[in-house]
Amino acid sequence: MSTKAISRSTAAGRDEELIPRYSLGERANHWLGSLAYIYLLMTGLAFWSPYLYWMAAVVGGAPTARFWHPWLGLIFTVSLFWMLKQWHGDMRIDDNDRAWAKAMPDYIQNRDDELPPTGRFNFGQKLFFWGMLLSVILLLLSGVVLWYTETLPWSLRYVRYAAILIHASVALVTIGLFLVHVYMSTILEKGSFSAMVHGYVTRAWAWTFHRTWYYEVTSGSRPRPRQ
C-alpha cells in the first residue's frame, strides 16, 4: 500500500503523492448502492410521469420495471445499512460540524479556506448520508405497502393512501440529495470521483478538503483504509 503511494509520489511531487481514502469494500458498496439507485430512479420516474415513461423502456419495459423496482429497493437498502456499518463512526455529527454548518455559505461560494477543518467527511456529506438513510427507511416501509398493495384489505386502505404519498415525496427528497451529491462529486470537487473509483486521493486534495482527516492518516493516528 505505502510502496505504491511512494512510488507514484516520486514523479509528481509531494502534493501529488497518493494516500488511500476508501477501502475496496467501501467502494464496492458505494457502487452497488449507486447502480441500484440509478435503476430505482429511472423506473421510479417512469411511474411518476407519463412524460418520463420511456425511461422504463430503456431498462427493459414497464412491467419488468414494476417487477424489479422493489427488489432493487431491497438491494439499495442493504447497501445503505452496510454503509452505516462501515461509516457510522465517521458520520457522527459533532461540534465541529455545527461550526461548519454556520459557515455553509462559504462552502457554497467556494471560500473553502474560511471553513473549519473537517474530518473524513464534512457536514454536507454527513447530511447526505443521514438523509439518504432516513429516506431509505421511509421508502422501504411505504414501498412494501406498494409492493403488495393488493393484499391489504379494504379496511386498511388508508395505509395505501399514506404509502403512495410518502413514497413519492421521500423519493423526491432523495432525488434532490442525489443531484447535489452527483454534481459535487463528479464535476464540482475535482478528485472526488476518482477517489471513489480508485480509492486514492492526493495529499493536496486531502489537505484542502478534509484537513483533520489528512493529519490523522498521515500522522498514523488513525489506520489507513485497506485497499
Binding site: 509531494r14 502534493d15 457554497i108 461560494q109 467556494n110 473553502d112 479556506d113 443531484l179 447535489v180 454534481y183 464535476i187 464540482l188 470537487e189 475535482k190 478528485g191 492526493t202 495529499r203 493536496a204 486534495w205 489537505w207 484542502t208 478538503f209
Partner: peptide
C-alpha cells in the same frame, strides 16, 4: 440551480499544501 452554481462559482480545486 446546479448548472448556475457551476457557472457562477466553478469547480473546487485542491490547493498546494
Amino acid at each position: 440551480g446546479l448548472a448556475w452554481h457551476y457557472m457562477r462559482y466553478g469547480p473546487k480545486n485542491e490547493e498546494p499544501i
